[in-house]
Amino acid sequence: MSAPKTRFHAWDWIFSPAARLGKQVRLPLERVGSAAWLMSRVVRGLFRLRLDQLDVVYRILRMQVKFTALDALLLTVVTALLMGGITLIQVFGQLSSYGAEDYLSKLLAKLVIRELGPLLVGVIVIGRSGTAVAAEMASMKLSGEVDALVAMGMNPVQFLLVPRMLGGMISVFSLIVFFDAAALLGGFVLAWLLLPTLSFASFLAGLEGVIGIRELAITLLKGLLFGGAVPVLCAAYGLRVKRSATEVPQAVTKGVVASLLMMFLADALLSLALYG
């Protein structure tokens, strides 16, 4: 039997570019919807955990915090010291030309606490832990571990995703606090080298008016948002693999790109809403 002939219609020619354009819009929206749906399942899974399941979740959570926060602490502190110093060089150059060195610590603190800290910690966590989570979930899916969890009545959302989301939240917030402290310290050391008359007490006094409850609340908000969303997004991409090990690096890449995009977009919106 011969294959049926495909008839060409004029409206195909007219509408196919529109359809292609529509697809380009629909696909990202579908992904956003899918990520939001998964996040809602994770939050629901968190609140549906039984008390006797908390011990198991805590074991996984502890491993996650150790890998995401503790093992990344040195890298975060070194990055923060360097970034604090680099930022100070830029700020110092601008301020000294106006004779406004007194504002050095205030400007540095605002830059570090409001934007640099959450964003750079987010990038470090995506690079270290987001990739690991995506690859781990993908290999668990391929090796039948996720199937075994389902078959044994271990809800994979509660067993795999809830502890990773909570671990991410705790880790990112903690790392932001360490990052901010190290960046300000690095900034002070460099400022002191450039301006030997600057005392630590006056540097701290300059910070006093800048770091308040509002700054801490915003740091907490960003930490919880980035820390919660990054592991869930990366895990979602990892769990999408179906058959082949060649899908693992693709899943990791997609998870990283989506996480970075989400983080920069969320940070821009938060900054507009809170400081705009």
């Binding site: 668990m140 039948g144 571990e145 199937d147 075994a148 969890l149 389902v150 044994m152 009545g153 994979p156």
Partner: peptide, 21 residues
């Protein structure tokens, strides 16, 4: 995994690859 039979751990699943974590 929301199915009551699976949720109470009533299935003895032994796949050929083992499926250990």
């Amino acid at each position: 995994f929301d199915h009551p039979f699976l949720a109470r751990g009533a299935l003895g699943w032994v796949p050929r690859e083992g499926g250990l974590l």
